[in-house]
């Protein structure tokens, strides 16, 4: 059981309403991100490099949540992504689990409100995510994937750039909830 749900259950009833809303958002937002990834690149193929589910995971973990909650959150998002792919289930799951864990532990050390830090962390985790996925694909599946560091750095920047406004919106949503 995660810290998050613990907190949810033990929270005062006055806050129940808003917490329920928050829970709904927590489910809907990654779903939208995944749908975006599945749907939009059909028309704008360039956007297939935008890892929204990853950014959502990072955002969640950076929000000073316990590592365990982040681990489960990342895993769930990853598993859904896996189910929509044509590869063994668990690949994205493991990667996003790790991302969730590390992002959560990092959040306890850095000032995650700072946009520059957010930018750097998003960039870092994108790179980490891609690299670790590649390692897994090679090591576990033996797949002959090609890892292009330059390209990954470039798309890391793209993702980090998207992360800034995205995190801002998500924070707003959180506050609203």
């Amino acid at each position: 059981m995660s810290e998050y749900t613990e907190r949810l259950l033990t929270s005062p009833s006055r806050k129940n309403q808003s917490d329920r809303l928050r829970l709904v958002w927590l489910i809907i937002i990654p779903l939208i991100a995944i749908l975006f990834q599945v749907y939009v690149p059909r028309f704008v193929s360039f956007l297939s490099y935008l890892e929204l589910p990853l950014l959502i995971t990072v955002h969640f973990a950076l929000g000073r949540r316990g590592p365990i909650a982040s681990v489960f959150y990342g895993m769930s998002i990853g598993l859904v992504q896996d189910s929509l792919s044509h590869q063994p289930i668990g690949m994205f799951g493991i990667v996003k689990t790790l991302v969730g864990y590390f992002a959560a532990s990092v959040s306890q050390r850095f000032d995650v409100e700072n946009p520059i830090v957010t930018f750097i962390l998003s960039f870092f985790f994108y790179f980490f995510h891609q690299f670790f996925y590649w390692v897994l694909a090679r090591a576990l599946l033996g797949e002959a994937m090609i890892f292009d560091p330059q390209q990954t750095l470039l798309f890391g920047l793209l993702n980090a750039a998207v992360a800034l406004p995205l995190f801002h919106i998500l924070d707003k949503l959180k506050v609203a909830a």
Binding site: V71, I89, T97, S105
Partner: peptide
């Protein structure tokens, strides 16, 4: 090391899942 333990368990579970599939 609760955090770490959970992380490891989760990862091992998924590895087993992949292992099964492969």
């Amino acid at each position: 090391y609760r955090n770490l333990t959970v992380l490891l368990i989760v990862i091992v579970a998924q590895l087993l899942l992949i292992a099964y599939q492969v």
